[in-house]
Structure formats: C-alpha cells, structure tokens
C-alpha cells in the first residue's frame, strides 16, 4: 500500500511537471487561451468540492469570493506588493466565507443555497453603489507585467496546493468529521462533532481559494468592474463542472472541468447565444443520468472489468 501511494505521488508530480511545460510550446496563444480558463476552473471546482462534495451543501458563492479577490488586487496594486495582495485576498475571501458560514450553516441546506445564490449580486450592488457615490469611477485598471504564462503557472501551483490540502484533509480528523456530517448530521452531532465549526472551516478554505484565484486572474482582465468580477455565471459553471466530474473523489472535478470548458469555449465561439441553454442541459444531464459524475461512471466500469477478470 505504501509503495502504491508513492507511485501515485510520483505520477501526479510527473503530470504537474508536464503541464507546467505547456507555456513553453512556441506560438501557443490559442492553447493558452484555453489552458488558463481550464486551470482556473480546475482550482475553483476542486476547492469547491472540498466543502460541497462531502456535505452536499451547494455553494453558489464562488463568484462572490472570486470578485472579492479580483477587487483586492485591483485596488491594492499601487500600495502593496503582489504576494501580500494574494495573501490579503485569501484572508478577505476566508473572512467573508466565515461570516456567511456562521450565518447560514447552522440551518438546513436550502437556506445556504438561497443565501449564496444572491451573495455575489448583493456584493456587486454594494460595490457599484459605493463606486458611484464615493469614488466616481465604475471600475479600476489593473496594469501589471504579469504574463499569461505566469498566470497559468500560478493557477497550476494553486491546483497542486488544493490537491495537497484535500489529500491531507481526507486523512485527518477534520476530513473524517466532514464525511460523517455528510452521511448523517444528527449522528455526527451525537458523536461529539462540532458540526457547525467543521462546516465553516471547510467553507472558509474553499472561499479563500476562490478569492486567490480571483486575484490571480485580475491582471488578465486589465479593467476590473463589478458586473464582470461578480458574474453569477461563474458560480454555476463551477457547480456544474464539479458535479459533472464527480465530487466524491479529489480528482473527480477535473474530469468535468476539462471537457466542459472545451465544449463551452466551442459553443461560446460559434453560438454565443446558446451558452445558457447548454448549461441548463448540462445540469439536467448531471441530475438525471450521471448523479455520481464521470468519476462515478468510470469507477463502476473499472469495478465491472475487475470482477470479470477475477471471475
């Protein structure tokens, strides 16, 4: 078992190493235009499922955290250094998640969904109002010398970090606790787990990651304004990608992110009006045909093959 884990670790490291070489391919503009969003969604979807996977709480707050991160970078760029800003984004995102979590996670799942559904819009309205009345400008420019390749490498690094954390959590008491909560919250409470605290902790983690992703992506926008930074569509994209891939495994969301992002780009390029319809159909497909995601389907097939071999 130990050896198997070591082999797996080496394999994962190898894959990350190969992926990191991607920007070195010459004349790679179109490739990078696809690779950066995929890397971004990979981080968002995987960190989303750290919390929402085991608990089944559907969080639609990703856009809110992402926007907070983007704004942190855009507004602080002239005052603070870049690494410090990423840290601040993580703290602000985590702080917002803590507030939201402490308000809603004591209650049942529906309240949480509804609250997060409007959260991005709420913050967008507040930021717009503040900018209209106090700063006078609608957005702010982000001028940096950060290249597309550097954004990609940062996202890849974040993805590795999410995987590492997810793996550690799964082996820890925290991971065990959150799985029990997901199975039966009442049982969890009776076995002495502080359910609210456990949920809030994991939610903070996923919120912090989304905020850092927002900060990392901000230089790519050049101009950061509320309706773009807090676009509610982002939250739904993350949810459908993660569920499509399968949230019961750490690597599951990846299987959803890559195909979905590619198809999405194709549709957005050829039929720009139909992306909403496509997203709706994807949701329905996930719910009705592959509730366990691609990962679940894969595991089932593997299991069958193994059984046939064994028998």
């Amino acid at each position: 078992m130990k050896q198997q884990e070591l082999i797996r670790l080496v394999l994962v490291a190898l894959v990350f190493g190969l992926l990191a070489l991607l920007p070195l391919i010459p004349a790679n503009d179109r490739l990078m235009a696809l690779a950066v969003p995929i890397a971004m969604y990979a981080v968002l979807a995987t960190s989303w499922s750290l919390f929402s996977g085991p608990t089944h709480y559907i969080s639609l707050a990703t856009a809110a955290f992402y926007g907070v991160g983007a704004y942190t970078l855009a507004n602080g760029l002239e005052v603070f250094s870049y690494p410090l800003l990423l840290l601040m984004a993580a703290l602000l995102g985590g702080g917002l998640a803590a507030l939201v979590g402490m308000t809603t996670l004591r209650l049942s799942g529906v309240y949480f969904v509804i609250f997060t559904l409007g959260l991005a819009e709420l913050i967008r309205q507040l930021v717009t109002w503040y900018q209209n009345n106090f700063t006078g400008s609608r957005g702010s420019y982000v001028f940096t010398d950060i290249t597309e390749a550097q954004i990609y490498w940062q996202l890849l690094g974040l993805l590795a970090l999410v995987f590492l954390l997810g793996w550690l959590i799964n082996r820890s008491r925290l991971g065990f606790a959150i799985r029990i909560i997901g199975n039966d919250e009442l049982v969890a409470r009776h076995s002495g787990i502080n359910t609210a605290r456990t949920k809030v902790l994991l939610f903070i983690l996923s919120g912090a990651f989304a905020a850092v992703v927002g900060a990392v992506m901000a230089p790519r926008f050049v101009y950061v304004e509320p309706s773009m930074a807090f676009s509610p569509q982002l939250s739904f994209m993350v949810v459908v990608m993660a569920l499509l891939g399968g949230v019961h495994r750490l690597w599951g969301p990846l299987l959803g992110v890559v195909p979905f992002a590619i198809v999405w780009e194709l549709i957005a390029a050829n039929f720009p009006g139909q992306t909403v319809l496509f997203m709706g159909l994807a949701f329905l497909v996930v719910v009705y045909f592959i509730p366990q995601g691609v990962a679940g389907v894969l595991e089932q097939q593997l299991h069958k093959i193994r059984q046939r071999r064994g028998g």
Binding site: I58, V110, V113, F236, V239, L243, Q274, V276, L277, F278, M279, G280, L281, A282, F283, L284, V286, V287, Y288
Partner: peptide, 14 residues
C-alpha cells in the same frame, strides 16, 4: 435544486 436550476437555464436559453 439542481434539476430546477437546469430547467431555469434551459427556459432562459429558449
């Protein structure tokens, strides 16, 4: 929740 989200997006698309 997920199914009706899907329906809502499909209806918006239509």
């Amino acid at each position: 929740i997920l199914a009706t989200f899907g329906m809502s997006f499909v209806l918006v698309g239509v």
